[in-house]
């Protein structure tokens, strides 16, 4: 096991997460300790409801653990202020969800460059890089199209380009192909792995698809008992 290594990009220490439920509480994660190194492509599998998304949300600073500590990209995520968290999410993270979560009032290119603009980058520079990334995901011709004019697979590719625009160290993908048909799933997966490898990103990928899970460099299985390396 390498969870004590100092160069780890992500470190989870004795994480417990419980939600209040009725008059008691629902414990979703217990005693989770985990370490992920820079450049690893980690696939996470597990039954529905076992807490995979919850885990990603804790690492992404969208939620806080009930106990334990989350360190990621050099930040003590579980202890950061709301303001510092937004900065962490902007600079160090790229999210891709099952649902594309593109902004409906903005076209493909504008959606891609949004994190860069939020981060205060110059618009012209951001647009140049955004156009390049759209080319890389095969949507160079669709820059001015709005989300409503794109197919499900195309939207996920735009979301992927958006996740990469700020050159984050960590990409988190929560069932990115969960809503896609076979053909589109393969296309999005291919691009996801190709780009994360090429840009040397660390990837946390939640998936139900064993084939896809096998494509990573490391595989984790989440159960009620904890995490297992496969």
């Amino acid at each position: 096991m390498n969870d004590m290594e100092g160069s780890a990009l992500i470190q989870l220490r004795d994480i417990r997460k419980a939600y209040p439920s009725g008059n008691g509480e629902l414990e979703v994660l217990r005693d989770i300790s985990l370490s992920v190194n820079e450049g690893e492509l980690v696939a996470i599998t597990g039954e529905s409801g076992c807490g995979k998304s919850t885990l990603l949300n804790l690492i992404g600073g969208l939620d806080r653990p009930s106990e334990g500590e989350v360190l990621s990209c050099g930040f003590p995520v579980s202890r950061l202020s709301e303001k510092a968290l937004t900065d962490y999410r902007n600079k160090s993270l790229g999210f891709v969800f099952q649902f594309h979560f593109l902004l409906k009032d903005f076209n493909a290119l504008e959606n891609v460059v949004m994190p860069a603009l939020i981060g205060g980058e110059k618009k012209s520079r951001a647009l140049d890089r955004g156009a390049e990334l759209l080319d890389r995901v095969g949507l160079g011709e669709r820059k001015d199209h709005f989300p409503s004019q794109l197919s499900g697979g195309e939207r996920q590719r735009v979301a992927l380009a958006r996740a990469l625009i700020n050159d984050p160290r960590l990409i988190m993908a929560d069932e990115p192909t969960g809503n896609l048909d076979e053909k589109n799933s393969r296309l999005v997966e291919e691009i996801l792995f190709e780009l994360t490898r090429e840009f040397n990103k660390t990837l946390l990928l939640v998936t139900h698809d064993p084939v896809l899970a096998g494509k990573g460099s490391r595989r984790l299985h989440l159960t009620q008992g904890g995490v297992q390396e496969l």
Partner: peptide, 16 residues
């Protein structure tokens, strides 16, 4: 609501 949540995910602060 959704757009606001997304913007926050992408790193917009509450002040933003």
């Amino acid at each position: 609501r959704q757009s606001i949540g997304i913007l926050k995910c992408l790193g917009t602060s509450p002040a933003g």
